[in-house]
Design a protein around this nucleic acid. Sequence first.
DNA 1: CTGAAAGCGCTTACAG
DNA 2: CTGAAAGCGCTTACAG
Lengths: 385, 385
Amino acid sequence: MLCHYIWGESVATLSDVAQSAGVSITAASLVLSDAAGAMRISETTARRIREKARELGYHPNAAARRLARRKSDLIGVLAETFSYTIALRRLEATIRALLNNGYQPLVWAADWSDSKWQFAHGILASNGVAGALILGPTNPTSKMEIARRLIDADIPTVSFDAGDGLAGAGVDRRGSFYDLTRAAISAGHTKIGYLEPGAGKSVDTLRVDGIEAAITECEGDVSLVSLRPFAVAASPPPPAQSARELGFQTGHLGADIFLDDDDPPSAVICYCDDVAIAFMHRIQSAGLGVPDDVAVFGFDGLPESSCTYPPLTTVEQPVDQVSAAAVASLLSFIDDSDTASEDYQLFPGSLIIRESSGAIPEYLDTADQDQVGDRREGGELRSAQ
Amino acid sequence: MLCHYIWGESVATLSDVAQSAGVSITAASLVLSDAAGAMRISETTARRIREKARELGYHPNAAARRLARRKSDLIGVLAETFSYTIALRRLEATIRALLNNGYQPLVWAADWSDSKWQFAHGILASNGVAGALILGPTNPTSKMEIARRLIDADIPTVSFDAGDGLAGAGVDRRGSFYDLTRAAISAGHTKIGYLEPGAGKSVDTLRVDGIEAAITECEGDVSLVSLRPFAVAASPPPPAQSARELGFQTGHLGADIFLDDDDPPSAVICYCDDVAIAFMHRIQSAGLGVPDDVAVFGFDGLPESSCTYPPLTTVEQPVDQVSAAAVASLLSFIDDSDTASEDYQLFPGSLIIRESSGAIPEYLDTADQDQVGDRREGGELRSAQ
DNA sequence: CTGAAAGCGCTTACAG
DNA sequence: CTGAAAGCGCTTACAG
């Protein structure tokens, strides 16, 4: 078997293929690179060239090709940390979408200090990436700044969950939190808590807007209280190693605040599933029951949300749709650097009612029920409520 | 601000830098590529060159550099699916380690059908990757075959959790399952269940060996029963979308087998944390208690294992160590393609005793306690057992 | 319709 | 010690 390792000694090059097929390098190149000009080569010759290429185990040298074409098929994929589960699912979907479209991902994982940015930018620039996708940081301000810098450097860039004039795609967080809040109100809660994100994350105004909109709209006597773990914590916990662990910390601290409260909310909507999982955990450790003592709501729809005790009411993100849309948006941006630069697509999440929220009348009686019903298999009851 | 996009019109090249610094291209190249020959350039000149490079926003064209050097700084990172949490944590640690060593990851995520392999190999070959790291598939036979093919193609390759003559690094699964079993025996269990992995995964003989070794060693009257979800399931569940969901399926099916058993084991050691989480979930849904009706043990040490109800006894994998060792092994393989080709390093896991297993006398009384004690913070008791 | 030749932006042996 | 020049493996205008 021939050695395929492209920089090895016995590697077949285009000129080897051309020679052994008895054609010019031009002809071989045209055929093997699927260039438009390939139609000028007769089908018989083309077949012979492809045949020889296979025999010799020919693989085009990507570096040479990029140099000659003056463009790269590499796309930068910038992630903050892989521990944030939803970002990971996006990463996977994104990589698949890129590969399917003939691009290759150059993945970058780092916290976004300024020096890291220099480093990342250097790598992206050196590789002449055709574009970039920003998965993280989750902090919208940093995300925006990174996107701006890349675009200033003429790198077509698209981001997730950004908006604000940046091209990309995301889930409708405002709508999702509106739905969660409406569900809580419909279940009769009149004092609703919102457990905010952890240290280093800025407030997400979209989530808050959604919650407030639902409260305003219902015109009932419903109040909102914010649980701000990191603003209140007497002794801040050690910095979390990952976004996931930060989520757990946040949930635990939020539960401590809840437990210290003389008149706590009867329902708590958490920033995300990670937070909700840890919140429930500590609430239960203290001897309280979910949903009897407090109804809990998450956001993200992680697979494990169906295996928590009790199973978690949450909103599932349409990960594949969002990733595909972001990649599509990037590709159209690359092809036509003007049009798509502000194309931002929002996708709705799907509310999944499970046991952690208690029964939700509105969603058991309306057309919504079917949509919700399908997903209930994941969440058996341990005991009736 | 100058445009940095490497294939754009206004991009600075090496010759621009040389010209503006008033030196030859050779001199500029020597200085800016940190070549050994750079010492021949005077410090003053070198400084001027670096200065100009910065002013012009020069970034070396990676494609040109790879072509001229006849070698690439890209490393293929092959993952099966990102949904397997431990693989993800490894992916992250691996990418960081590569970047820190001056390499860039070319990440590949796919199930490993034969056509996908062709595709992956084509990309790796075209890019002339300096080496490859195999994170997945988790199936050892496929992993081995992929590694062999890559090595046959002269691509230095290292894998995780492989062994069997393949270079790489991994966690000591045999030792970990030995520890888990010893803990179960020490807690007085005489009938121990092992919940095997899901569909498509082959039996892991190392895990089984570890369990059997501990049972043999104790010389007591301890028996082992295997719970084989997918061998028994009357109607196989729909194929899981991800390794993580497969783990949950496995746990649920395992629990069904357990619940149907007239004389079930009093302790169940699960293939991994995902399986254990879902196993506990369904056991509890059926009205049984953990650990009172069955003690449950996991493996991996995922962050969420401390937030389950009850917190999960498990073995934590030394992810960072394993990843760093795998990368180090690969780099030495690349530098010296003979020596390191069979260098396989095993790292021990750390047993973490939490509530799901009930109290373990041996680990409360011995020197092990300290090691274990540190990690207990994650697992509060809801109620005393 | 064809193929020789220039050129992509680097690195590095080699001649001065 | 220095810099002109060859060469890496492709693509693609351009002359025949």
